[in-house]
Amino acid sequence: MSDLIQLFVNGLALGSVYALAAIGFVIVYSATGVVNFASGQFVMFGTFAGVSMLLDAGLPWAVGYLAVFVVMAVFGAGFFACLYLPLRKSPVATMIIGTVAIGILMQNVALLAFGSWPFRLPSPLDGLSVHMFGAVISAHALMVVAVTALLVGLLWFLLHRTPVGIGMRAVAQDMRAARLMGLEVNRLLALSWILAALLAGLAGLLLGPMWFADVNMGDPIALKAFAASIIGGFGSLPGAIAGGIFVGLTEVLGASYISSAYKDLIAFGIMILFLLVRPQGLFGERIQDRG
């Protein structure tokens, strides 16, 4: 029984990281319609921004975290200006390949800058762990779960209760109508990219201490984030959370009770099944062919 609790707790922690990565992906998708294949590399950039600020520059926690967010915001704005604007009228597939190309670029620039050596990002909660019901969980993993939960609340508030957020949703629904209504569409689109980059930065900072950081960490994360957002529902924030946790639990429980060799097959099999039977996922949009 205590094993089951332990597996459940670990699956939850793993799923929270997938969920965090999926949220950044979903924000971009719902605001701009772009399926961002570089979303894993965004998270990698976040982790390495953390590596430069906390490990290399040795900044104190608060300053270091703040610096990471500044770097990521600038990066998001740059991404918007250099990639999204020139390609925004392109078809879906061209945009996908555009994000793939920029992903390769980011990965190799990081390789040139940081090398292939793995890093361990420190956490303010290093070394602390909590024992409950016979299971052990690191305090940092608990923090990840808590931050993920808090974030969903904040994002919901931002998107539904603030003028900026409502504007962003308006742009997402109908760009032309939003423009006619006098909204500054470009600024709101830029904000979406910045927000996505900030979330990726946060995801990077949070997963860095749990998983080791290396410049090739991006793609596997993106793959799981895709599965999470499909299962949860494309374009839905609660869906991204539910999907992420679902994938995390499937991975750990599947490995334990079905087969450790085929556990990812279970996660992706469920993803395909969802697409076939319920393409809108747990919470997602109903329209199938947008974007």
Binding site: V35, V92, A93, I96, L223, F226, A227, I230, F234, A261, Y262, D264, L265, F268, G269, M271, I272, L275, L276, P279, Q288, D289, R290, G291
Partner: peptide, 26 residues
């Protein structure tokens, strides 16, 4: 599968490819 369109089909087929890899590797 082909009832799906756009990026839904893209990700479903991506999942198919990942599954193919897992099966051939194991």
């Amino acid at each position: 599968l082909l009832r799906l369109k756009g990026h839904y089909l893209a990700l479903a087929t991506l999942g198919l490819n990942v599954s193919f890899f897992i099966i051939t590797a194991n």
